[in-house]
């Protein structure tokens, strides 16, 4: 499934417009500790987190993650959005908790 489809089906708000929306999502990783993400997330994963500072884009780029979902409507810094667009990483926002986002992702068949 593409990032664009997930964005539409989960009713997420894209902060990065159409940037990177045709990327294929291969799995999901949920964690707010960056070193855990570095060690365990896989290329193509969508990463669900409440972290919003610019370094999340460095992590996503280095690991070639497909996209980032910011849960709990956490406010994202302007610099993070700018960097996400530069690196082609879609930044999507949900008002739901990481758990509810995970549930929605499972419901639409991601990760199964």
């Amino acid at each position: 499934m593409t990032v664009k489809e997930i964005c539409a089906r989960l009713n997420l708000r894209s902060l990065t417009g159409e940037c990177g929306m045709d990327k294929e999502v291969k799995g999901v990783y949920i964690c707010d500790l960056l070193s855990w993400v570095m060690a365990h997330a896989h290329a193509g994963d969508v990463w669900v987190t409440i972290q919003t500072h610019t370094n999340i884009i460095a992590v996503a780029t280095l690991l070639e993650l497909s996209s980032i979902i910011i849960s709990e409507d956490a406010e994202v810094e302007e610099d993070t959005i700018k960097k996400a667009i530069e690196e082609g990483i879609p930044l999507l926002v949900s008002e739901k908790s990481s758990f509810m986002v995970a549930k929605d992702l499972i419901d639409i068949g991601i990760g199964s």
């Binding site: 707010d32 960056l34 855990w36 570095m38 060690a39």
Partner: peptide, 15 residues
Amino acid sequence: EMGFGAGMGLPNMKK
């Protein structure tokens, strides 16, 4: 608060 400080950086490097 920024998500650093899990104490996993050096073990990750070694791994």
